[in-house]
């Protein structure tokens, strides 16, 4: 019984030690991260003049856009076009497939009149239309006409 209790206590102690070491590790990680971040912050505040002015310009553009958005929220054609371009940009794969399919359909429609099946119709049209009198005088024509039908 006593042995059983001792085992339980040992397990409890080892779990406690594990938790303590994991906490200490976490604390050490956080200290390291804090030190690194303090250096990174210091470095980020010391950018060169060109980078600072570019960022200032970028901020100004964003602020202007925000101002424009706040003033004219109803209908904005530029925003609509921009939004359309954004949409196209984000769905580039789908748009490309759509365009390819559209081009394929147009190609089929354009090539349709040149299809081979129309040959018979065009022959019938030619034969149905008025022929010059010389055609009837030609014996060869009559033979061809009989053979054809």
């Amino acid at each position: 019984m006593k042995k059983h209790q001792n085992i339980k206590e040992d397990v409890r102690n080892s779990a406690m030690i594990r938790n303590l070491s994991s906490d200490a590790q976490l604390e050490q990680d956080q200290d390291t991260a804090k030190n690194i971040v303090s250096l990174l912050n210091h470095h980020a505040q010391n950018l060169n003049a060109k980078e600072i002015s570019s960022l200032k310009l970028a901020r100004q553009i964003a602020v202007d856009a925000h101002l424009g958005h706040a003033k004219a929220p109803a209908f904005n054609i530029a925003g609509l076009v921009g939004g359309l371009f954004d949409y196209v940009d984000h769905h580039r794969a789908a748009m490309s497939s759509g365009l390819a399919f559209g081009a394929f359909l147009i190609a089929i429609l354009v090539l349709q009149p040149f299809n081979h099946n129309n040959t018979k119709n065009s022959d019938a049209f030619l034969l149905g239309s008025e022929l010059p009198p010389e055609a009837y005088a030609d014996k060869g024509f009559n033979t061809w006409l009989e053979k054809g039908f």
């Binding site: 990174l40 912050n41 470095h43 980020a44 505040q45 950018l47 980078e51 600072i52 960022l55 970028a58 901020r59 964003a62 602020v63 925000h66 101002l67 706040a70």
Partner: peptide, 21 residues
Amino acid sequence: MATTQELSDFLEQVERRAFKQ
């Protein structure tokens, strides 16, 4: 809704860190 000044302040605060990141 954030005001334009609030946006400007926010961007000024984060822009350099964002750039380095």
